[in-house]
């Protein structure tokens, strides 16, 4: 703490003669070459095995950008984003309720989490679908009135099923985040006359985000894959579309590979987004931000060219 970090090193030209840099023969890591060769060999074997299988690989590119597949991808994305949004918003509310001094709200939150975390999401989806057995109509007075079965479209069932389940998990993630913020922060903010709400919104939540974002990224990726369950409630997302095409075109297994490839692409895109989000919330918490992948590549290339340049000179 005592180091004056703004005390910059003296400019290079004022230093008389820099000491001679060490030039030593680097340690040879033979193990790395051996393990690298083994890994590549195993990979080649696996690829060979798959290419020899009774799989019509040609069918995959044929359907990869098929309108139905793209539609399924779109619906999967839509469902992921909306369910996650619902999960995050409700999760934040539930975690705040859970930590509240008010015994009623904290009990409600506890009960909610207990129920939605304690039953499988697949079962919850099916229950939403069949809730018409309990509520024959949905009646919002003069605003809206309809049969439950026609109100509960596959999309709404899927969204509620996934979103409400996610909220229970997000609530626990958010609670961990809120608890991770030093109590001194709350005290400082209250001592300045800030209300509970302001303290939470301006001081605690922004700091909790650093703890909340990484597991939430995990949840997004999980959600993306869990959407494949909603084919059970007749919502035609990516997996369902792929299976439908598989049945009509006779390339059932191929379409599963196609779906897997799409899921992998989507999760990769989300992971990149997560990286930048984490970087944003790290501001102020460390003295320098972690480099972006692009900056890392640039640095590596630069150091490589320096090294080869130095080698050539030597």
């Amino acid at each position: 703490m005592s180091v004056d970090i703004n005390n910059k090193a003296e400019p290079a030209d004022s230093v008389p003669a820099p000491p001679e840099a060490i030039r030593a023969v680097p340690v040879k890591h033979y193990g790395r070459y051996v393990s690298g060769v083994i890994a590549v060999a195993v990979l080649v074997l696996i690829i060979y095995a798959f290419s020899q299988g009774k799989v019509n690989w040609g069918a995959i590119p044929d359907f990869f950008f098929d309108g139905r597949v793209l539609g399924g991808v779109g619906k999967t994305l839509l469902l992921t984003v909306l369910a996650m949004l619902m999960g995050v918003v409700l999760g934040v509310v539930l975690s705040v309720m859970r930590l509240s001094k008010n015994p009623v709200t904290s009990s409600i939150s506890w009960f909610y989490i207990w129920f939605f975390r304690g039953t499988p999401v697949y079962v919850q989806l099916l229950v939403w679908f069949n809730l018409g057995l309990v509520f024959e109509y949905i009646n919002l007075g003069p605003i809206y009135k309809d049969y439950w079965s026609s109100f509960m479209t596959p999309f709404l069932t899927a969204l509620l099923g996934l979103g409400l389940n996610e909220a229970a998990y997000m609530a626990e993630i958010c609670r961990a985040g809120l608890l991770s913020v030093d109590e001194g922060q709350t005290e400082a903010s209250q001592a300045l006359g800030m209300s509970h709400g302001k303290t939470l919104w301006r001081i605690v939540i922004p700091q909790a985000m650093r703890v909340i974002v990484p597991p939430t990224g995990n949840e997004v990726i999980n959600m993306l894959k869990t959407t494949s369950l909603v084919s059970a409630v007749q919502y035609s997302e990516l997996l369902r579309v792929a299976q439908d095409i598989g049945q009509t075109s006779g390339a059932a297994a191929e379409m599963l590979f196609l779906a897997a490839a799409w899921y992998l692409i989507l999760t990769t895109v989300f992971s990149v987004g997560q990286f930048y989000l984490e970087r944003y919330y790290a501001r102020g918490s460390s003295r320098s931000l972690p480099p972006t992948p692009w900056q890392k590549v640039k640095a590596n290339v630069l150091s490589l060219s320096n090294r080869s340049g130095g080698g050539a000179a030597a």
């Binding site: 001194g184 922060q185 300045l192 700091q207 102020g284």
Partner: peptide, 26 residues
């Protein structure tokens, strides 16, 4: 009420041993 307590705290500045600055703000 909490809001009334907050109102009174406006007039009382406090400086802590561990500073407690908000780390996400300049």
């Amino acid at each position: 009420r909490d809001s009334e307590v907050a109102l009174k705290r406006r007039d009382i500045g406090m400086v802590f041993q561990r500073f407690n600055l908000f780390p996400h703000m300049t």
